[in-house]
Design a protein around this nucleic acid. Structure first.
Lengths: 231, 231
DNA sequence: AGTTGTATAGCACGAACGTTCGTCTTAAAC
DNA sequence: GTTTAAGACGAACGTTCGTGCTATACAACT
């Protein structure tokens, strides 16, 4: 409560230009980083894209690492705003679980970040470089995995999913499908990968559902066979 | 045979020295690249690790891109030697399909490359940078995906797997599990991820198997369970 | 013995990197 | 109207990058 008031007081009372510029920088930074990586996110390139001087831009962050960390936070905010929040408007349980996966796939497909999933790329880039950046990425991805796992648990608690399903196992599998779809799309431009991921996820949701023909999930595709032939 | 003698004898000929050095360079290059990425694979660092001069090393390759491409080929050779070849010793059909997945997981777990799967890392790094390097990586990963898909088809032809399974779909799912396990292990050091991937793959193989309780696959539960707990 | 060709080293280059510094502008505070 | 400080700038730092040129050590062949 105090914090929000504090920030508004500062921004309106004092010159708001600094924070506004910083925000514009981070917006561009997220875009560059998702395509070129957090290391390819260069201060010079960033400054050029924003028609700023390197030094003027750099003054907003104490170091390159700080810039990377701030960029990660900005990407997390977008992720929460674009995926978590809308998915949580769905009813707790299987609908929410499905919507989490569905929206995630849509957000990669729709190109919210031009380089695919920001965190998948960042994780692959930094998984071998210890430090605060890697730690923060790992934390955020664990948040996501935990959100999936909790949605599975809640599905079971709501009596919508069989109880002998291991939530962590299912979360692992769903996350893997998303990584797989992202990988296939980024490397081959293969849009069909999203359909494959959705099919894999839905197949499992239906199989573990306690309600046969549940209206909690979208209706099954008609002839899966004929579609598979056309390739 | 010759190689052991070669190392002891210096008089193998000046002309053979070049290729031998080149091979030693690539061996180290693959290791560095798997951990630091193909861009982090720096000529200076590589030369330092090998106690060579930058220029002397550089002379073996016309450009950095050539070095990257040569490193990719070296990694592919290792991949074929360590995974494809031993898996193809298994009987064509489900045993081979399973062994492909199983060995892949073992090879990441065993740390053949210190940065996890070389190609998963390279694909993530280059998926947004057009050029020969990216193209070659995409080709090689397609080879792998195709190997999986063909193993599925052969399982069906051998009458071991239900025919209404879409081979490309199953290959996508298995590849996703492998990417997921690699991701989880690299980011969290989570060895349990390999057990999860194996469980997911085996579950599907058993479900689609035409032979219930098939001896073509490892037996369910038992040791794998207790092993998964010990972490 | 002298020539030739290969393998490596030495050195320097231009560019780009992250970073620091001093300076100018300008809106707000007094 | 003067003072203050935030914000942006240009120049330069030292380092590392990839990449050329040139020289040398040595095996092979004439």
């Amino acid at each position: 409560m105090d914090i929000t008031r504090e920030t508004t007081t500062v921004t309106t009372g004092r010159r708001a230009q600094g924070e506004r510029t910083r925000q514009a920088i981070l917006e561009t930074a997220v875009d560059i980083a998702s395509a070129e990586g957090l290391e390819g996110l260069t201060i010079g390139r960033l400054a050029a894209r924003l028609s700023m001087s390197k030094s003027g831009l750099f003054a907003h962050f104490g170091s390159k690492e700080d810039l990377q960390l701030a960029t990660i936070e900005a990407a997390r905010a977008i992720f929460i705003h674009e995926i978590i929040r809308p998915a949580f408007e769905a009813e707790r349980g299987m609908p929410r679980l499905w919507k989490l996966c569905d929206i995630w796939l849509s957000y990669v497909q729709g190109g919210v970040f031009s380089g695919g999933c920001f965190f998948a790329a960042a994780a692959a880039e930094f998984d071998g470089r210890p430090g605060p950046v890697r730690d923060r990425i790992a934390e955020i991805m664990k948040e996501w995995l935990d959100t999936l796992r909790r949605a599975v648990v809640e599905s079971q608690e709501a009596g919508q999913m069989e109880r002998d399903v291991d939530p962590a196992q299912l979360a692992f599998e769903f996350n893997s499908f998303e990584l797989g779809a992202n990988w296939s799309f980024q490397l081959y431009g293969d849009k069909q990968a999203f359909a494959r991921a959705r099919e894999a996820i839905l197949e499992r949701l239906r199989r573990y559902s306690t309600l046969s023909g549940s209206s909690l999930l979208p209706p099954p595709k008609e002839k899966r066979r004929s579609r598979a032939r056309a390739r």
